[in-house]
Simulated assay, not measured.
Amino acid sequence: MTSWADIQKLASDLQRVQLSQSSKKLSEVNCIEVLQKLIASQQIDVVYTRDGHTYVTKKHLETEVRNFYFH
């Protein structure tokens, strides 16, 4: 089973590559496919927005709520 630390490391590596000017970048379609597989295998837990087409992680949602109410 993949640990949360493994997923965070992969996400960090992916972000670094995506921000580079490299030919190794993933297309948007590939990124969506990776996310869908992580969601389907319950490796990440997301909250869908009202339109049902986009989502955020619970941690991101908690951060957004905290920032809205306390800043």
Results as ranks from 00 to 15, higher is better:
S41I: 04
Y48S: 10
A40D: 15
A40S: 14
S22T: 15
Q42R: 15
L26H: 03
R50P: 05
D45R: 11
L38V: 03
D45V: 13
L19E: 11
E28G: 08
I44V: 15
Q42I: 07
G52S: 09
Y48T: 09
D51P: 02
I44R: 02
S22H: 04
D45N: 14
L35M: 12
I39Q: 11
Q36M: 09
T49G: 12
N30K: 11
L26A: 03
E28V: 08
S41P: 01
S27Q: 03
Q21A: 09
V17T: 15
Q43R: 14
S41V: 04
E33H: 06
Q21H: 12
L19A: 10
E28H: 05
K37C: 04
V29N: 01
V46F: 06
E33Y: 05
V29G: 00
Q21L: 09
A40W: 02
L35S: 10
I39C: 06
I39L: 06
V46S: 07
V17R: 11
G52P: 08
Q21S: 12
L38M: 14
V29P: 00
K37F: 01
E28K: 09
S27I: 00
Q43M: 11
Q18P: 02
L35H: 10
K25M: 07
K37A: 10
E33V: 03
I32S: 09
V17C: 04
D51V: 04
E33S: 11
E28C: 01
K37E: 11
L26E: 00
I32Q: 11
L19M: 10
A40R: 14
I44D: 03
V34T: 02
S22R: 03
I32M: 08
V29M: 00
Q18N: 02
S23N: 12
V34F: 08
Q36I: 01
E33G: 05
Q36W: 01
Y48L: 14
I39R: 11
G52D: 07
R50W: 03
C31K: 15
K24G: 08
V47M: 11
V46I: 15
A40E: 14
G52E: 08
E33R: 10
R50V: 12
S22E: 04
I39E: 10
Q21P: 01
I44E: 04
I44P: 06
Y48H: 13
V29Q: 08
Q21M: 08
I44S: 06
V47R: 12
